[in-house]
Amino acid sequence: MIDGAHTGPLHFSLLTLFPELLRPFTQEALLGRAVTAGLLKFDLHDLREHAGNRWRKVDDSPYGGGAGMVIRVDVVERALAALPVQPDEIILLTPAGKKFDQKMAEELAEKNHLALVCGRYEGFDARVESLVTREVSVGDYVMMGGEAAAACIVEAVARLRPGVIGDERSWQDDSYSSGLLDYPEYTRPAQWQGQGVPEVLQGGNHAAITRWRRDRALERTLSRRPDLLPSAGLTPHDSAALVDLGVDFGKLAALGAPPPPPVKTKRRKRKPSEPALTIQAPTDGGEQ
């Protein structure tokens, strides 16, 4: 959870060979509004400005041979040294880095200044690793450069800062923030091509809606990302929902889920006893 104690904007320094790829991204939509509101700050730094030669050449062929070109360590060193303010974190975007996730986004959102170093070609001289605080990958695939990866990280981190998005609850309930995938959402029209909106969402019973959303989030996570369930903070009611979805008690234990609440059995109502047959005893005077 972001505590909102920061007094200044979250500052991003983006080091890239193609700053014009990122400039519009930092100026539009919610990011642009947050910059105007003083919540975010972006600096774009062209690595070619620190090439150290009149050709602005930042790369060279790899020692030992092989295809492609490698960005030189001295170029990156000069670019980082030229930053007006030294960042809290210097992040190298590389397929070899630790995979970026929501937990890392929340951690980075607590910082004041992040520098993201975007690569191209065959990547960086390995000695660049000694200049950074962490290496990050946005997934198990290779792209043509680090600019798209930097954009992913900027969006995921910036939206966690207070005020950047309108309602902070909207990210607290998001996929991964809650520990589960997000529940399905609906809006008008209520009927579309034979598909309707679940009745519970139209009934106004907020407790029932909350439970329905949690159950649907559990259902989605179970079918699509069951690996998330052990760290999702499951409750006894969640366990009951998972049992209803077909999870057996052995699997519940493997997920670290608590036992579901005991089923309340309705007490069988006793049949009202038949009225007793009353016989009026004769009086001393005999039959009447």
Rank of each mutant, 00 (worst) to 15 (best):
V35A: 12
S13Q: 06
A29F: 05
L116M: 05
G68S: 09
R213H: 00
R134E: 09
D3P: 02
L40E: 01
G256W: 03
L17Y: 08
G65T: 08
L228I: 13
A148G: 09
A96R: 15
K271Q: 11
S170Y: 03
G250I: 04
L131R: 01
S273I: 06
L40S: 02
T265M: 14
L47D: 00
G66N: 11
R54S: 11
L47N: 01
E106C: 07
G203N: 09
D46F: 11
K57T: 13
Y186L: 03
D248Y: 05
V243Y: 00
E89Y: 04
E185N: 10
S13H: 12
L93C: 13
L40I: 03
H113A: 00
G196H: 06
A207C: 01
E274S: 12
V138T: 13
S178M: 06
S178G: 07
L47K: 04
Y121T: 13
I209E: 05
M144C: 12
Q288K: 14
T94F: 07
D244I: 05
P24N: 10
G166T: 08
P226C: 12
R159T: 09
S137A: 10
K264W: 05
A208W: 05
P62Y: 13
V154L: 05
L131F: 08
R213G: 01
E135I: 11
T235Y: 04
G204R: 08
S13P: 01
I209L: 04
G146H: 04
W192P: 00
E77T: 15
T283K: 11
S177Q: 08
A5I: 03
I165H: 05
Q191S: 12
L83G: 04
E49C: 00
P259M: 08
L31Q: 10
E20W: 02
G146Y: 03
E274D: 12
Q202D: 01
P275Y: 01
V128C: 02
L222K: 08
F124A: 02
